[in-house]
Design a protein around this nucleic acid. Sequence first.
DNA 1: AGCGGTATCAACAATGATGTCAATAGTGGC
DNA 2: GCCACTATTGACATCATTGTTGATACCGCT
Lengths: 201, 201
Amino acid sequence: MSVRPRKRRSSEEARREILQAAEARLREHGLAGLNVVAVAGDCGMSHATVIHHFGNTAGMRQALVAHMTERLLRDIIAALQREPAPEPTAMLRQLFDALSRGGHARLLAWLSIGDEALSEDLEPPEHLRVLFAELVPVLAARLPGHGDREAAAKRLIFLIATAAIGYGIAGARLPRMISMDEAEAAAFPEWLGRQIDQLMA
Amino acid sequence: MSVRPRKRRSSEEARREILQAAEARLREHGLAGLNVVAVAGDCGMSHATVIHHFGNTAGMRQALVAHMTERLLRDIIAALQREPAPEPTAMLRQLFDALSRGGHARLLAWLSIGDEALSEDLEPPEHLRVLFAELVPVLAARLPGHGDREAAAKRLIFLIATAAIGYGIAGARLPRMISMDEAEAAAFPEWLGRQIDQLMA
DNA sequence: AGCGGTATCAACAATGATGTCAATAGTGGC
DNA sequence: GCCACTATTGACATCATTGTTGATACCGCT
């Protein structure tokens, strides 16, 4: 009876491999494909190993949410503090890209309709709030000088964020609904950036 | 042995009851709560009855998607053809409301990450495309006269749609991220309407 | 080399969800 | 009232997934 050799990884390595496979399955097979047997199969390990590392299936999923959330926040932070001398509108554009790409919108969609066990409210880290707190006055200084400019800046950020999330989720289906050119739809982010410029002028 | 009396409904009635319960479960328990046993329990019937009416679980889910999609499209259509004499910007505002309310954004999120079996591409009905085709020139006529105004109108619709979907999905979480007032966030749709007015001026 | 720690595995038990089936019980039409 | 139709049901078989357990193999450390 030939027993195939075990592949031993460090605990950290195993967790990383598992989460990577889990994310790929979520991307390609949807929520239904996110079970320990399938994920373990993709990693070439037994499902018992997955449970060993994450306690149970819910633990694996929560770890995946935490992992994806961490990268989402890191991407947002990177977009907000990119050097050199960030132009506010460029930062908004990068914020849009960071939110709409890389499956981040899908993560938020998952948190919106997935198992309730997942959405144990993950508070945004203080670090991120500080970054937004820094962006707001910079943006506000560029706005026309009537009314509450800080509130106006926040609304602009809010617009960028919602549009990016909607774009990440439905951006592929929408064009056909309104007979819009694919290329035109792909150019939407850039166009939105110009509109923001116009609104700030 | 007392056998509790059976409640007999018409086929149509049963389907409606089941889909109603299924939608409630999706709203309250997420995707995990969407199985035939639980749905049947909420309806006070056996799960075999549910399967009898929809063939299998996937049939029930597809019927639910179809049902929710139908209502979504009906809401959009109602928003686009509301009388009297629809102002283009008012129509855009109503389009925003129609998309962001009533769990429609959640439906799209579900289609985005749910079982792949669900998203067997439901083509938008010709009726809706016609309505958009009517809206576009009306909107285009209001736009400043340089460049391709039809394309510009479509981009505006696209912006409204993406923002509405993002608002429906993440509108509850976003404000805390950027330290935004709840009331301020609730006023976002109205503000967006004014911005659209400004972009069209 | 020897050894303790632990990552890994196969096998098992338990649970839950799915789908089938034959029997039953309302309902409308005659 | 009778009958055909079908919505409804409990019981069952099946399958997928989860989680446990005891044994094992790999690795770092002394």
